[in-house]
Design a protein around this nucleic acid. Structure first.
Lengths: 139, 139
DNA sequence: CCGGATCCGTTTCGATACTG
DNA sequence: CAGTATCGAAACGGATCCGG
């Protein structure tokens, strides 16, 4: 009923998993989207402890797939700034639903209550604001 | 703004990825949720071609985390039926958003247009119906 | 037959050390 | 700071075997 209809091309879920179906990629997206991190060094400092080569590989892959872009920092010319593209920002609904799922089904996880309340009552606005906030990450 | 507030426990995204953050797990969920598959042999026949040992490992892990349950088929006593638990069914919004993202950003992927239209206009109802349909997978 | 378990060659991952 | 190089560990995947 919801599955096969005019199904001819590749499965959308399989396609998505080929891009971010691993242990680390969505954590990189999370850092960029929710935590205002845009530097390699900031992401490497995340508490989960991604290895430097793994982070480098994920950033390269995300750029290759057009989810993030890579610039030289306009102020500090030595640093590199990673930013989510529109395609990357469009993953916001996926991340929001993952957060809701974890929060609903596991007591040990911690999402801000205001975030969850907002997601329940005004999901579209929350997503719009999350994207807007991630867009204006400047430094 | 959306990230750290009363953040004390584990990151919900990290927690979720520990469960389904790999190349295969969400495809198993997809088979159970959208394709009415409930037997090992049906899942192994999916076009992506999961290996038998990998499928067995994922099913075991999903059961351990309480996303699926395992029963003997009431009719054909030899077969085993896998079913999504409420916790597993609650992943429906995540899968729906993944489908929407892939469909929106990659022309090669194929989701039924009716599904996408429904997701855009009446997301909650679509999710409810998807869950209801997955629940009554009997055989 | 169905639902795996086991073995094994190959690929990928990941921790640490090192570098332009 | 933003990555490589290296190398052992883990995961994958294909084949085969096996208990019920």
């Amino acid at each position: 009923m919801a599955g096969e209809d005019g199904e001819v091309g590749r499965c959308p879920i399989d396609h998505a998993l080929a891009i971010f179906g691993d242990r680390w990629t969505l954590l990189v997206i999370r850092d960029l989207m929710f935590r205002g991190k845009c530097h390699y060094s900031e992401m490497i400092a995340s508490p989960e402890g991604i290895a430097s080569n793994v982070l480098a590989a994920r950033l390269k892959k995300l750029e290759a797939h057009g989810l993030i872009s890579r610039h030289a920092d306009p102020e500090n010319r030595k640093q590199i700034v990673y930013r989510l593209t529109d395609k990357g920002l469009a993953l916001a609904p996926v991340l929001v639903e993952i957060v809701r799922w974890s929060s609903a089904h596991d007591p040990g996880t911690a999402a801000p209550k205001a975030f969850l309340r907002r997601a329940a009552r005004d999901r579209e606005a929350l997503i719009r604001e999350t994207i807007a906030a991630a867009k204006k990450t400047r430094r």
